[in-house]
Design a protein around this nucleic acid. Structure first.
Lengths: 188, 188
DNA sequence: GTCTATAGGGAGATAGAC
DNA sequence: GTCTATCTCCCTATAGAC
């Protein structure tokens, strides 16, 4: 788990390839080739391919955990939503490719189940749905999650600056989640 | 391209597995095992694995093409949007798993490039964005596409009835796309 | 339509030298 | 930290009998 230049280079190369070919579509040979080294050199840094996947995904999970922590500390529902939304949007914008890679690959999903950061997904989803969610709340939350994740890799959005993307994602997400059925502002 | 019971069984088994393990994560052996036959029996129906993927995805692409056709026949922008949205939502609900499988796997994406139905994606996306799209329109369209696709496989939504899911997806999608910045109803 | 058998290649992973 | 060399396994795909 110690950071080292060589490890970081593996992770960077792996992320590039995962985003382009998917996790299962990326072999250790491809990672090694992109780095200009051999497979064995990669294996010196990571004992298995799964470890590489987790190293790519890990920082994102940690950050999701911190976002969930911060959001849950807020006492009003509207503040919780704002903190969670802003956090996830920032994360998506800064790591445009990572989010989608991990969320939509079933193999990664299974791997991530074992990661200590995994519950963050559900905690943030719970903030998006709110307490006692009905069908409407579930669908809204799912569309926000899915929409934000996909935004990171959508080719039509790749030309947008970080600032523009962030602003529009926030606006779109708020539009989905806000005002369920004649809901009023909740004070703060 | 002729339909036959054996072919259909391959496609059905493949779809199950693609949804669960991803396309690259699914081998012909797994498909054969699920059908209770051998790999060779599968190869008698399809000459390559790619053909199986295209057979799974093909009907969805055809339907997307028909949706795009119908939507483009409408003359008002609001009608175009309604037809496209309703069509895509129906498609997602009826084929809950297929949509996401194809859209989010980079390998499938590359395969689908060669399919005659492929342009339907862009045509429908264009209807979602509208003419002369700005950043806002692109982001809205991307979130609707991504959100709808992901809804088909989201575990939190799997318990919902088709009717409930359809209604809520439509409502959420309209909420994203509707009224950009003080937009009025456009007549018809 | 389904089978057995097998070819040929690339995958993940390991051993040990430098 | 990187290399060469190698192992084992499973993959896609093919051949030919039933």
């Amino acid at each position: 788990m110690v950071a080292s230049p060589a490890r970081d280079r593996v992770v960077a190369a792996a992320l590039d390839l995962f985003a382009e070919y998917g996790v299962s579509g990326t072999s250790l040979q491809m990672i090694a080739d992109r780095m200009g080294v051999t497979k064995a050199a990669v294996y010196h840094q990571f004992q298995t391919k799964d470890e590489i996947v987790l190293a790519v995904v890990g920082p994102v999970l940690e950050r999701l955990t911190r976002i969930a922590d911060a959001a849950e500390r807020e006492r009003s529902r509207s503040r919780q939503l704002e903190v969670a939304l802003a956090g996830v949007v920032d994360l998506v914008v800064e790591h445009r490719r990572v989010a989608a890679v991990m969320q939509f690959d079933p193999i990664v999903g299974r791997l991530v189940q074992g990661d200590p950061g995994h519950p963050a997904f559900d905690r943030i989803r719970a903030i998006f749905t709110g307490p006692d969610p009905d069908a409407e709340a579930h669908v809204r939350a799912a569309m926000v999650s899915g929409g934000l994740m996909i935004a990171g890799v959508d080719p039509a959005l790749s030309a947008l600056s970080d600032e523009k993307l962030r602003a529009q994602l926030l606006a779109a997400a708020r539009r989905i989640l806000g005002r369920p059925a004649g809901r009023r502002r909740t004070g703060d």
